[in-house]
Amino acid sequence: MRPEVFKMIDRVVTIDPSLDTIHCQGLVPQESSIFEGHFPGHPIMPGVLLIEAMAQTTGWLVLARNRFERMPFLASVKEAKLRTFVLPGANLDLYSRIEHEGSGYVVAKTEAKLDGKQICSADLSFRVLPWPEGKMKAVVLKVAEHVSFPLADYADA
């Protein structure tokens, strides 16, 4: 995980064949410029970045569902709960389950666990839109390789 550049996911662990759920992992680094301000001398993973990690987890699942044809953009965060401090070195297990896929949007329930215990959760919704002009899709595909996303199964060549 490199939270200072919003790389919140280290690895896609599993995507279930029905494309309803995903499990990812992200290791909170020991050092990051994020911790210079949050907080000086008392580093804690910012809650908004935990929500971002859950959003990115869901994002990989949405990309698998549409085979990278369209990009999910976070639209709403509901029922967000941040249950405990998350410290440097925490290895997070991130889960998301699609609750509903509508026309141009997705709703998901997400959570993160540390050592099997839930540490945060949220209901997230996303607009699912055509890729913007430019290199964004190519960059996301490159990141997909780095996080062991199963491109052979869920992306068209």
Partner: peptide
């Protein structure tokens, strides 16, 4: 309207 659509869909 996304929230409304979600509730209507359900």
């Amino acid at each position: 309207f996304l929230d409304i659509a979600f509730a209507i869909d359900k």
